[in-house]
């Protein structure tokens, strides 16, 4: 299991390599990237902040939950970026390997969906005329 929070660019191929397993017939991945628009406003860049220690702990728990739910999971890798990211940069990579493809889609989606709900990482969108912490207010 590869779990990492980094302020350096994520090498997607290295994350995929980390889930390579002889028992795997499928590798599935999700790559989250920085988009140039948000709720109709032009986004210039994003600033990610994390509660490092808890974020890594919670990421590990999410991966462990996935392995309990899909016992056929061979390997799991989650790498999340922090710091300032520009448009097109990779913010997160989730990769899983399983014997067959159906479970690889399900497990990969579970991990990214749960990550977005529980892992203490925050992003602030920077526009040409200000900044907003995403989802902070109703």
């Amino acid at each position: 299991m590869l779990i990492e929070l980094t302020d350096q660019p994520i090498h997607v191929a290295a994350v995929l390599d980390a889930v390579q397993a002889d028992g795997a017939g499928a590798v599935n991945s999700f790559i989250g990237t920085i988009r140039n628009r948000s709720t109709g406003r032009r986004v210039v860049r994003l600033h990610y902040e994390a509660y490092d220690q808890m974020a890594v702990h919670q990421l590990r728990k999410v991966a462990e939950q996935a392995m309990e739910r899909w016992p056929m999971l061979q390997k799991v890798a989650v790498v999340h970026r922090k710091g300032t990211l520009e448009i097109g940069d990779v913010a997160v990579v989730v990769a899983v390997s399983t014997p067959h493809r159906a479970e690889s889609f399900a497990a990969c989606q579970y991990i990214i969906d749960t990550l977005k709900e529980v892992v203490p990482i925050w992003k602030k969108e920077e526009y040409e005329d200000g900044t907003v912490w995403v989802a902070a207010h109703p």
Binding site: P120, W122, K123, A136
Partner: peptide, 10 residues
Amino acid sequence: IALIPPVSGG
């Protein structure tokens, strides 16, 4: 102890 406002990772 830490305060955790709405998270927005990913």
